[in-house]
Amino acid sequence: MSIGHTLLGLLESGPRHGYDLKRAFDEKFGHDRPLHYGQVYATMSRLLKNGLVEVDGVETDGGPERKRYAITDAGITDVAAWLAQPEKPEPYLQSTLYTKVVLALLTGRDAADLLDAQRSEHLRLMRILTDRKRQGDLADQLICDHALFHLEADLRWLELTSARLGRLAEVVAP
């Protein structure tokens, strides 16, 4: 996820202080990992250097000085371009699970047990996410759903693999 573009996007609704930006980001997107203030500061100075934001004003009411940032026209164009650009789908071609299964087969260990254990773990996480989704708001639900669908896809792969373990063993056998 591009933090720069996200912060730029948040600035489009009006100028904000750096701390405001961090709070807004955490609230909307940072469920699991809140931003460090340093990260905000570093990003903003990069954007400033590239001319995508400008300093709107500085406040010093008693404390340390706080810059207010505003987005520039170039910044708006940059956000628009980013949003219009489709994300490249993850190819998921390098799978640790696949590697584990093949290794288990090669070393004569029980691959089915491995898959079952993984299945249980996946489902456990799904239950947690489902529970959170039930208590959360719409944003929570959407984020959890995103994760749930991915986990479900993994689970389907696990099911399919356990159904084909026999054939896979023949193929990978030395």
Partner: peptide
């Protein structure tokens, strides 16, 4: 047979 439905269970 759907994992997402099963995730509602305990």
């Amino acid at each position: 047979h759907e994992a997402r439905v099963a995730a509602y269970a305990d």
